[in-house]
Simulated assay, not measured.
Amino acid sequence: MMSTPLPDPLRVAVVEDQPLFRSMLERMLDESTGLVVVASVGTVTEAARALQPGVADVALLDIDLPDGNGIALGVSLRRRQPDLGILLLSAHDAMDLLLDLPLDVAAGWGYLSKNSSTSEETLLTAVRAAAAGETVLDPALLDRVTPRAGSDVARLTARQYEVLRLLASGLSNAGIGQRLGITEKSVQNHVNAVYSTLGIDVDPARNPRVSAALRLLEGTGPAT
């Protein structure tokens, strides 16, 4: 499936109530090639006022804000701007919140934990993937889950499950191939097998990578 070219520069809004963490995010994003911070605020009220449709391409939203929560804010922003990418940040390690999103806004959301995702590369990958309409999950948290017995995810081979986790972490097929030391064609074959096992239709109107990431969330639980 062809991906839509991202705007250059990619406009990012930050909604985070902790001033120090917010300034760190601003600096990291502004110093990254192809990204620019266009708004930086600390509350739902300020965000609703600042993030008018068309201002940003992707919004980083802290889930816990002093006057509300980032999930409800993200739903509101997405319904005003359907192509806005949303990346949630939280200290509570609750990726499964993405499973409760309303269906009309469920694509193009990502989730990173403040406790585990300290890598600049991880953050930037997630920002760009969210802007492209993909669902990105925290790679460190994915390392802590295993397939649930009886789930479709449990039917995947070890290599297919590995490919699915990397896909859900926001890596492209080329990036997955580099990580695993296999060809991009081999990665695509594994991805197709994952879609088949999980019953995901490759529909041009829907992003199968989003569906695969959400099925991964549904079919896994904490490692024992």
Rank of each mutant, 00 (worst) to 15 (best):
T183I: 01
A59L: 05
L123Q: 11
R215Y: 08
G199A: 12
S169H: 06
S40K: 01
D93C: 12
G34C: 12
L141Y: 07
V136N: 02
A72H: 08
A174R: 15
G54S: 09
A154G: 05
R11K: 13
P53R: 08
Q81F: 00
I63G: 04
K114Q: 11
T220Q: 06
Y161L: 15
A154I: 03
V12Q: 05
N115R: 15
G170Q: 11
L137K: 08
L98H: 03
L103I: 07
P19Q: 13
A193Y: 10
A47R: 02
A149Q: 10
A106M: 11
L10Q: 12
A72Q: 11
I200E: 05
T157K: 01
S169N: 09
G133M: 01
W109F: 10
L180G: 07
P5H: 14
L164K: 12
G74H: 03
L141V: 11
P102R: 09
P204H: 05
L35W: 04
P66A: 09
A168T: 07
V12D: 03
G68A: 05
T4M: 08
G42P: 10
A213T: 02
D138P: 03
L97A: 13
V14A: 00
P102K: 10
G74R: 04
L164T: 04
L10K: 11
G68H: 06
D143Q: 13
L87A: 04
S90W: 00
A168F: 07
I86M: 01
